[in-house]
Amino acid sequence: MANPDQASSAGEWALHGGESHLRQVLEAGHFAVTAELNAPDSADAEDVYANVAELGDVCDGINATDGSGANCHMSSVACCALMARAGYEPVLQMGCRDRNRIAIQGDLLGAAALGVRNVLCLTGDDVSAGDQPEARRVFDFDALHLLRTAQIMRDQGVLLSGRKLTTPPEFFLGAAANPFVPPQDLRHLRLAKKIEAGAQFIQTQYCYDVPIFEAFMRRARDMGLHEKVYLLVGVGPLRSERAAEFMRSRVPGVHIPDAVVDRLAKTPRKGKREEGIRICVEIIEEVKQIEGVHGVHIMAYRQEETVPEIVERAGILREKPKE
């Protein structure tokens, strides 16, 4: 791993230059593992590296969230640039809540220049979900406009206005899917639309309800979507039944069945953390068997240290070639 302090020239910043490593892993047919970085409330790069330390060795990509849950943290572009500089593979999450189309396109160019190759295009949680609900919501674009615009910049080499780019960005484009909220029987159609708009990989919302996910995948396969996109299932360990209750009532779009909450509630206090990890591992083992699943995206908010254990116990740890 390069010493971030020695990175000075543009060449050293963009250590990964060229193609997305995540894309190479997926195209090689490997079962990919990505994880979510807890973006720090800090102005110190070391805090990013501290949070990412647990994840680097077991992940093929690390997502930097973009003001997740509408709470302010270090920007996703900055987190990604710092990760790229230190030799990690960042996945830039970009939402439409905080920026208009001018800022979005500028940030995409800047991120690409800083070595970002993977972009997850999101609509974004509403401002009302966060700790500054009095903020203005922007939503100039929706997630599909963002996807298509990034695709246009990459493939056509122009901005949305038609103005030419000297060097177009090289992006591996992703989108989110949430099969677990209404209208559940139509969610595959929105997935199809996102693929049409340019999505090459998908990271889903937390999966705690495998039967719903299976039904979603069946419909997606009927449309042939599993052959058009790499799909990574969102998973994560729950710390306790209280954490589960908080997530399903306060975090937009999270569905946790009662059975999962009850299972944690019945576990003695000392074993809850272990039970949460066990549930997560079981879900990975189940979804891994589903046709059209190409990997998992582990979101272990403030429990990054559990990610290596989860990866190992789920049997998805892969020896990575050293660069």
Binding site: A129, R137, F139, L144, V181, P183, P252
Partner: peptide, 29 residues
């Protein structure tokens, strides 16, 4: 409230209502 032209978003509540305005059915549903 998110001005989506290609909805619905992933924040729809289990009762089919809006993430932002809980008493309103999601217009995209």
């Amino acid at each position: 409230p998110k001005n989506l032209r290609n909805g619905p978003c992933g924040g729809v509540r289990q009762n089919g209502h809006c993430e932002v305005i809980p008493e309103m059915p999601c217009v995209w549903v």
